[in-house]
């Protein structure tokens, strides 16, 4: 599998599994960097891609929290079924 697709799946999966499914339960980029052992640049690029796909959203304040949109929850769920 293409490494970028593997990373994309991992991010969707982790956001789902930690319960980051609404803006009040979002997680920071720093948290994802630690869990995924990924650089900020690499992670930011994939997160931006996921935002473009409307799978991920960023909380609309300065807390920098990321969470799955309803569409993102469905995409993450597709990994498991």
């Amino acid at each position: 599998m293409d490494p970028s697709i593997r990373s994309l799946k991992s991010i969707l999966s982790i956001l789902n599994n930690v319960g980051a499914i609404d803006e009040n339960r979002g997680v920071t980029l720093e948290y994802l960097m630690v869990v995924l052992s990924m650089s900020r640049e690499e992670l930011t690029s994939i997160i931006n891609n996921l935002i473009q796909l409307d799978y991920v959203s960023k909380k609309a304040d300065d807390s920098e929290l990321y969470y799955l949109t309803p569409r993102g929850v469905l995409a993450a769920s597709s990994i498991y079924s």
């Binding site: 697709i5 969707l12 891609n49 469905l74 995409a75 990994i79």
Partner: peptide, 8 residues
């Protein structure tokens, strides 16, 4: 439909 493979 949608899913993790869409980009691919």
């Amino acid at each position: 439909g949608d899913g993790w493979m869409r980009g691919e």
